[in-house]
Design a protein around this nucleic acid. Structure first.
Lengths: 191, 191, 191, 191
DNA sequence: CCTTAATCGAGACGGTACGTCGTGTCTTTAT
DNA sequence: ATAAAGACACGACGTACCGTCTCGATTAAGG
């Protein structure tokens, strides 16, 4: 109840003023509560924003674990969900958190564990299903290949400010991702 | 004279307190001047800090255009230079730029022009040399493939806080980049 | 508690630097508080200083309503109290009030109500007692006559920087005030 | 030439922003010159304003030495001139100077000598003419009586913000000033 | 059913930094 | 040589947030 209001207020505030310009006072006011209620749960604005970001991202995850019947469809659906999320206010928050993480290694790890790992697990699942089905040959899963489509999506967002279009996503999947999965190099994977 | 003092003061302040904790008052004091002299040139602390870092960085750039004789060697050298740069203070600034760009589209463009384009041109040059030599088949250059190694390096930096090691870079080149270049899909490239 | 500290700090600051040289920062520091606490209550240094002085003055007022048994004694006692007040730091504040009032009509009124009116009521009371006793003939009270001694005292203060001496006050009462009251002109009083 | 521009600029600036709000920078700009030219002649804003004020006042003085043929007419004419002056921008400057004088005794004296003394000499002249004509009995001139009408005019201005009307001036002259001059007390005048 | 404890909103508190403005001095231009 | 224009070091201004804190008022559970 109250938490929902706080989450919504935080997203709105960060979207409007940026993480740097966000203020506890205003978030409290937007949420119709007092600062004490916020400081009781989060030590500062950044922590609050990170929590909101990750929680919101995670709620969006289940919808992103699709089973369209084909590997191509699954990957595309997943990327599309990601691109949609990053195109919204969450994209702004992501960029803020990236800079914040530069000063706070804790945040970096937290971010990696709660967001990076979840994304990766999702892809692993999809690929294992695909190997079961025989869509792609059995192979050891290379983490760099797993990250690849997400990395390209995020990279484009960070450099140009907008996530890839559906056509661009298809291009990424068809000319980069699928070829790599169909003809794996079989090289050993470094730690 | 005064500018040198300000640059030095800014670097010292940022080193001491971090980019986020730097304050105009203290920078002015360190530089033996007044705030007005700073605000006359930069609109705020971030702009000052970013200017200082970008200027400092660009002086170190020219060393990055390699010609090792083989495509693999060229790409690796280029990536290594990038990873080294991003592992230093430059990495921090990159992250600040990213968040700053979320609120200032101008900066986004500026950044893309002064860094993204330079990086891309460098890769294009390497690939054309390689096609001349016959290392890889003649092909239209796919911007997503060009960005790919840099995207993976940056992505790892942003998620984990540290750039890839030499072994990881070799892995990226050998199992992802070179296979894609040796067996291009030939698909049309979307705008 | 805090207010006391602020009042004391303000008096100390003004004593040290003069009203014009007083600064909010220093007053806050002297009072062991922050500027925000001051600006929450007063819009600027002048308002604070003036409030402190007016309050301080009013606490000293009650002692000023004399009943010496003769009209001459009453008026002299009243003027003497006024002269004493204006000879202290209060004189400085009076002058500040005057210049401040030139830009702020509200202050003009406030000043008139809290001092002018009080002073006038005091004189009216004395004169009515005197008419009762038969010291002076019954007469309509002319506001210009009522203001007269105070006006002369203030005027001298403003022009020379020091209020009249006891001998000068006696002269004013004996050669100007009392003759006018003993032989009133009886002319109508303009609005 | 330049001085005229500076004088006009100063009057305009002080009228617009008050002495407290006046700035050397703006006066210089209004006068179409640089700050250096001002600081070469006056040590600070207050000194400049005082100089302008007194000079302007003195130029207006000669017009105030009337000879209407009757004492009443002379005094009224003189008071009217004073009230007019004080009702204009000069009234504002007067009030500013009064507060300034609180911190600078030099200014107090200067003001008294150049303005107060001139006013007094004017009244003395009028009264001596009147005694010559037999309008009033020969008598020692009491400085407090001399100051009296001006004191009342200034007092009203300072308390209410507006100088007396013509009717009020006549009242002051008829019921206070003239009676005192026609029936002098003859008491000795204290230093 | 009442009371005791926790939580709520509201907002004051001591602080730090902000970005603007004005000071009085000193230097650069352009005659 | 002088004058305008304006940079310089300094410091006060008034605002906005910070993170801590004290308040009643409102709930809830537990005796």
């Amino acid at each position: 109840m109250l938490l929902e209001a706080v989450y919504a207020a935080t997203l709105a505030e960060v979207a409007a003023k940026g993480l740097r310009g966000a203020s506890m006072d205003r978030i409290a006011q937007r949420a119709g509560t007092g600062k004490a209620a916020l400081y009781r749960r989060w030590p500062n604005v950044r922590a609050l924003a990170l929590d909101v970001f990750i929680t919101t991202m995670q709620q969006a995850l289940p919808a992103a674990r699709p089973d369209t019947g084909s590997l191509r469809g699954d990957i595309l659906a997943s990327l599309h969900t990601l691109a949609d999320e990053l195109g919204s206010d969450l994209g702004i928050v992501l960029r803020e958190l990236i800079s914040e993480a530069a000063h706070d290694p804790t945040l970096s790890q937290e971010f990696q564990v709660r967001f990076g790992a979840a994304k990766e697990a999702e892809v692993v699942l999809m690929l294992e299903q695909a190997m079961h089905r025989g869509d792609i040959p059995r192979q050891a899963l290379d983490p760099y290949v797993l990250q690849l489509p997400a990395a390209l999506v995020v990279h484009q967002l960070l450099l140009t400010g907008t996530p890839p279009t559906r056509a661009q996503l298809e291009h990424i999947v068809d000319t980069i991702m699928l070829p790599l999965l169909r003809h794996p190099s079989g090289a050993p994977i470094p730690a």
